[in-house]
Design a protein around this nucleic acid. Sequence first.
DNA 1: CTGTTAGCGCTTTCAC
DNA 2: GTGAAAGCGCTAACAG
Lengths: 337, 337
Amino acid sequence: MAVTIKEVALLAGVSTATVSRVIHNHDRISDSTKQVVRDAMSQLGYIPNAAASSLAGKNPKTIGIVLPNNPGELFKNPFFINAMRGISVYAQSKGYFLLYSFSRDEQEEIDFIQNYIRSGWVSGIILLASREHDRCVEYLNSVSFPFVLIGRPEDPQHTYWVDNDNFQAMYQVVNYLIDKGYRKIGFVGGPPTFRVTYDRMTGYRQAMNNRGFFPEDSMVFQGDDFSEESGYLGAERLLTLNGLDAIATTDDQLAFGVLEKLHKEHREDIAVTGFNNTVRGTYQHPGLTTVDVNADQLGERAAQLLINLLEQQTSNHQIITPNHYLVETQLIPRDTA
Amino acid sequence: MAVTIKEVALLAGVSTATVSRVIHNHDRISDSTKQVVRDAMSQLGYIPNAAASSLAGKNPKTIGIVLPNNPGELFKNPFFINAMRGISVYAQSKGYFLLYSFSRDEQEEIDFIQNYIRSGWVSGIILLASREHDRCVEYLNSVSFPFVLIGRPEDPQHTYWVDNDNFQAMYQVVNYLIDKGYRKIGFVGGPPTFRVTYDRMTGYRQAMNNRGFFPEDSMVFQGDDFSEESGYLGAERLLTLNGLDAIATTDDQLAFGVLEKLHKEHREDIAVTGFNNTVRGTYQHPGLTTVDVNADQLGERAAQLLINLLEQQTSNHQIITPNHYLVETQLIPRDTA
DNA sequence: CTGTTAGCGCTTTCAC
DNA sequence: GTGAAAGCGCTAACAG
């Protein structure tokens, strides 16, 4: 079958232990044997058996990725595939394998995580999408297994995570709207249990305040989910207000719902902004002004953070890595604002 | 750490060998011990260590997925994420793990496949996207490693594969157009090196012939790729023909290119159809008449085929499984036809 | 700096 | 039907 460490050792005229040491760049190895072993490895096309090295207590060099399974969302929002691609870019460059699974609900997410860990297959985990009181985070912490969250955690000090600067992103959107001459800007967000909703709402409020506007609570709507229906409801609510001239939403789907209601009421004069730069927003008319969250950057950074963390554990060089990255967003101006 | 087979054996009062036999439904095990062992397993929440079982020569219960990395395509076409989801649905239900990687080109695809196999990580491989003379297929055959192709192979007899019935799908499209009263229907396809192009073209020709139309070669255009640019070029070419009233394409991207050219020439009267039911086609105006290829069904079937194959290898029951599945497509009528 | 050896958790002959 | 024991390929003390 496949070529083993033994054959490499034989060809190089050393012991298997030495070969293993060369593979892992052990300190005390003479340059000459290093060279001999490397030659032997490439000559035989040796690839270490992941199962064996994992069994023997090594980093299996595999990352588990847990995805939510909202079929509609998955289909409409390129976020997930882009994040996965981003993860793969970094992980592959470091020789890591990637495991994924779609889960239907939180319980299944936890089941998968348990399987990942107990099976001994993965060295670390990347979680996509975070809610408050995330039981996955809780579980991973309780077994102190290395993981990185894409999204902002409850406890940002003691968790590894990457996210957009959602406060800043929405802050920019609102300033953009104000610069364009809009004044009475409403807010339509997703469920308040999501951290991202909170951050973007805070960005909204701060930006408004800084420019001298002080929106009452009636100008802020938070839906039960991120759906078009919620957006529609939000617009319905906000339209009861006088003089409204713009609506900033936290998600393209919400924005589409808002636009639908505005269309129905012939209030296309009201500006609308979304978030996530979904495909529909690109191609519908009018094009939706939105924010690109740079999903592949998020993925790449998440992988980087996790792999740094893992390699740090094994090596003794205590390089202090940051525990999070904030990824830039990009405002995409189109027709709706 | 995690609970091992030893602890289960201890609790059940049997040897580890017996536990192993129970796990794998070995024949000669008394029902009573089977029960005792099962109880012990669930009581301890035992999950077998995949690395160890794989090392000891068992099916690692892991499937490797090789994806092409055409960022634009990935972003615009929900095919890949849906196929991945489909694969996950079946694989997860059978307790299989899923490994994925994005590759930049054919060489990298082969590298990943080699890594997958040599590392001992995967029991089988699913390949997305197939071209003629696919070196991956060639390689996998040469080492006789189990794999399933999503797409039609060169040698359909001796390969495991799933695909749409592309002949039938395009046959339907053309009949639909003819039923709608269109007569002079042109064809714009992708590169002839792709099997899918060939099948759809054949479906087109057959349908035309059966209804008494015999398109000359000038009515058939095959681009260098599946891009909008190629579609644009194709339309340019076909528009030189007299009396053209419809263009059937093999891909939504091509169709968008065609539409662009038609728009420019004010020939919106010409009907256009696409393939793949991309998001843009849904939301643009006019909505694109297209064909949904049921990507998640394709993924699910591919996983089913591969897992059947793998389990068959280990068990002695020679269940004869089919070597391919044909997945239904669905015509989605919209404004452009 | 390098070799020897034990053992990771599981499967699998080979006995009984 | 079930247990004992060897070994999958690799790593990590422990020697030297």
